[in-house]
């Protein structure tokens, strides 16, 4: 089986990781999203007059809990993905084996006749 696509994806991921390490070590950007460049845009445009019309019903009480919930979301998704891809793989494998048996039977019967 060809692994060409895997290699291409791996290369892209490495390039992405490399640019991240390069940028994060050469600039002092804070990777918490504390960059005030995007932060000020709406304030800058409206002159700080806009008041949000609603607030979130509930906010994660800390950054750690927010990360936990993000991780939970990823885990649920990854679990479902793995389960069904594994299910299909095993099913196909099993069906193939079964298929060979069923096919070989009538043939051998014919030979014996």
């Amino acid at each position: 089986m060809s692994r060409k696509l895997e290699l291409i994806v791996l290369a892209l991921l490495l390039i992405f990781a490399a640019q991240f390490f390069y940028i994060s070590s050469t600039t002092n950007a804070e990777y918490g999203g504390a960059d005030d460049k995007p932060a000020g845009v709406i304030e800058q445009i409206t002159g700080g007059t806009y008041k949000p019309i609603a607030n979130p019903i509930w906010e994660p009480p800390s950054a750690e809990i927010e990360s936990l919930l993000f991780a939970l979301q990823a885990a649920i998704g990854a679990g479902i993905l793995g389960y069904f891809l594994g299910y299909y793989r095993a099913k196909k494998n099993y069906e193939n084996k079964l298929g060979y048996k069923e096919k070989s039977k009538p043939e051998s019967d014919r030979h014996s006749l």
């Binding site: 990823a74 998704g77 990854a78």
Partner: peptide, 19 residues
């Protein structure tokens, strides 16, 4: 659906310092 779930939970840092 699960793929959307996984990918949209992956907050990755990006060039201008935001995620």
């Amino acid at each position: 659906g699960a793929f959307i779930f996984v990918l949209s939970s992956l907050k990755l840092p990006s060039v201008n310092g935001s995620c």
